[in-house]
């Protein structure tokens, strides 16, 4: 019996690398990233042209591109990263290359967060450039009204919605189902609370997009708001993600 060669286990860095690569190396991925970049630039420009009463400020532009551009599209990118492995049937190859499935999931989450961080840096740069351009055009001095708290709060919001997308993908395993569920959920809550007013006030406790609203303004949340954020995150990230991962780790492919 010829012996197998001794190889070192695959380090996490290589899995993370591969998952990063998967974000950009398909046609759908590249097109989607392009659309996100377009939305980031577009929203900054829109905010610079129609800034409202305050005039264009850095915070206004960044909030526009981060909340309308990144927070809207990044979760869908995260969903696609998971569900395409099912729809394209590539999961068998992925797990044959690295049978420690938990590490593959961790690599996917890490890659989604890496993409998020990179795109936030891009959004900050775009907002700065557009703001400077707007200041020249309007003949005003640029207003830099963003502190570290707003940046960290924005990043935290994006991390939460990206994790939610990943969790929905893991739980539902189907691209259209996961995207539709993710997009419809806030509307469903809004609709239900229209008729049942007592739970309207309780909404931030169990509705994540509601609970993250104060975070985009900075980290000055009240104790109650932090608790609401934790409760909504548990409900829409930890629970679906936990069930999805559990099924994936145990299941047959």
């Amino acid at each position: 019996m010829s012996a197998l060669l001794a190889h070192a286990p695959v380090p996490f860095l290589r899995i993370w690398n591969a998952e990063n690569r998967k974000v950009v190396n398909t046609r759908a991925g590249a097109v989607f990233l392009g659309l996100i970049a377009l939305a980031v630039v577009g929203m900054s420009v829109v905010m610079a042209i129609w800034p409202g009463d305050t005039g264009p400020t850095f915070g206004l532009l960044l909030n526009g591109s981060a909340s309308m551009g990144l927070a809207m599209f990044m979760p869908i990118l995260a969903i696609l990263a998971v569900t395409s492995e099912f729809s394209q049937r590539t999961l068998a190859v992925t797990f044959a290359l690295e049978p420690r499935r938990g590490r593959v999931v961790a690599g996917k989450v890490a890659a989604a967060l890496t993409t998020t961080a990179v795109l936030l840096v891009v959004a900050v740069a775009v907002a700065a450039v557009v703001l400077l351009g707007a200041a020249v055009v309007r003949g005003e001095t640029a207003v830099w009204d963003v502190d570290g708290g707003v940046l960290v709060g924005t990043l935290l919001t994006l991390v939460l919605v990206v994790l939610q997308g990943t969790a929905f993908g893991l739980l539902l395993r189907s691209t259209p189902l996961a995207i539709i569920t993710y997009l419809l959920l806030p509307s469903v809550f809004a609709f239900v609370t229209m008729f049942i007013s007592p739970i309207r006030d309780a909404l931030p406790w169990f509705e994540l997009s509601n609970a993250t609203v104060p975070l985009m303004e900075g980290l000055a949340l009240t104790g109650t708001q932090w608790a609401q954020l934790a409760s909504a995150s548990f409900l829409w990230i930890v629970v679906p993600g936990g069930i999805g991962v559990w099924r994936l780790l145990r299941g047959d492919l």
Partner: peptide
Amino acid sequence: IAGRPYASLPNPARNVGTMLDADALHAGR
């Protein structure tokens, strides 16, 4: 494989090559 389950081999695909499904390729890659 060599007395061990595949999943317990370190970097198993270096020792065991598999082709289980010719359609397990991403169409856009």
